[in-house]
């Protein structure tokens, strides 16, 4: 363990802002890359099911 206390861990030897900004951004970008396709999938499936029902209704 490189840090003695939690506050030391947060401050990162004075570079806390930079380190946490980077990791925060990293988490945001990684999570967004998983959430966006998931939402797109839900939307797509809903749309296609609706289309299918409509087409079957016509028949």
């Amino acid at each position: 363990m490189s840090f003695d206390s939690f506050s030391e861990f947060l401050s990162m030897g004075g570079h806390g802002l930079y380190v946490w900004l980077s990791y925060g951004l990293g988490v945001v970008i990684l999570v967004a890359n998983l959430i966006v396709p998931k939402l797109a999938r839900d939307h797509l499936l809903k749309e296609q099911k609706r289309r299918l029902r409509r087409e079957e209704g016509v028949r």
Partner: peptide, 11 residues
């Protein structure tokens, strides 16, 4: 570089 080096693990 001290602890700012830890950014390498994302960069």
């Amino acid at each position: 570089q001290g602890n700012s080096f830890r950014i390498i693990y994302l960069h």
